[in-house]
Design a protein around this nucleic acid. Structure first.
Lengths: 192, 192
DNA sequence: CCTACCGATCGGTAGG
DNA sequence: CCTACCGATCGGTAGG
């Protein structure tokens, strides 16, 4: 467990890394945002990269925990996929800064953390693909691999533009995406 | 017009900015990749940010020129949208480094370049939305605004993973996406 | 295009 | 958590 103060430092680092980028954020920027002197950060953390790691690893845990919750209940395949998309959007929208670092800044991790991160992310995507495969089993023209890539691509992009203070709640956005992804944008009549 | 040498510098900068990020790339990194001394770069360019600007502005021109070409011919709305998606994917796949900087590093531009970039990007997206609107006009359940966001989100993400040396040519990838986006992933039977 | 250099700032540490 | 500092490196310039 991290101390409360360390959690504050991590949260502030996520905001700054998301806004300015990892390398463009100096430890003195971070210290200033926390009303500390530069060197004082190091009584709580070991290095700048440790902060990056803690942010993306926590985000990875959020995504995986969400998928486990979604697959735990006994739900039809299509509804499970709908829940997974909602959950994926929800994790992103719930902490946009962490999601931005997860999708964007992780590549500045050095080994072995970089590989550890990628392994968790690949695990998540493989689990997601199984949910997609179960839902599209009656659609022989659809390759679950590419359907998963399409779904995650579209939703991952949220970190680039989604505004939690805007008019569209995460679940409504997810449902809009789900309707289009499930039935297509050229459907001739409305889908319930 | 930029000199041939300057074009080489811009191309190398795009590669480095895409791989390491704008701030994590030093001018000495760039000079070294070009077999120059650090200070020698400044006989060709004014500043590091000028390089960033030239990369994203050229990418913006590529996207806009593509859309103009697509809308110039007299093609049915659905086919025009298909061509636009293929074109969008093509521009990204054709220069992944430039696309990465366009989607990812532009935010390190300072004013007034930052606003100039965003204006061109908004213009492109508005034009793309018109193409989508014409294609989905018979689908009353589909909002062209969200359909456009879905399409561009899914395709923009390509810069994160697409490998031009891989087995899937850009047009085939685009057609896979188009099939799923047009008809949905839950369609009960194959679509021609 | 090079050498040599500028002031500023970087991540991190010692010692308290 | 602070003060004071380390060596390294940053973007950019002067003068040739």
């Amino acid at each position: 467990m991290e101390s409360a103060r360390k959690q504050e430092i991590i949260a502030e680092a996520a905001q700054l890394f998301a806004t300015r980028g990892y390398h463009a954020t100096s430890m003195r920027d971070l210290a200033k945002a926390l009303a500390l002197q530069g060197g004082s950060l190091y009584s709580h953390i070991d290095s700048k990269e440790e902060l990056l790691w803690l942010i993306v690893d926590e985000a990875a845990s959020q995504f995986l925990a969400m998928l486990h919750a979604v697959t735990a209940s006994d739900t039809p395949p299509e509804a499970t996929l709908r829940d997974a998309v909602r959950g994926h959007v929800g994790v992103i929208a719930n902490d946009l800064a962490a999601a931005t670092v997860y999708f964007h800044e992780w590549r500045f991790l050095t080994e072995p953390r970089r590989s550890a991160f990628l392994a968790r992310r690949r695990d998540y995507e493989a689990r997601f693909r199984q949910i997609v495969a179960a839902a599209v089993v009656d659609s022989p023209a659809v390759d679950p691999k590419w359907a998963t890539t399409l779904i995650l691509s579209a939703t991952n992009w949220l970190y680039q533009w989604y505004d939690p203070a805007g008019p569209l709640p995460p679940d409504e956005l997810a449902d809009r995406y789900i309707t289009m992804l499930f039935h297509g944008i050229l459907m001739p009549q409305p889908v319930p």
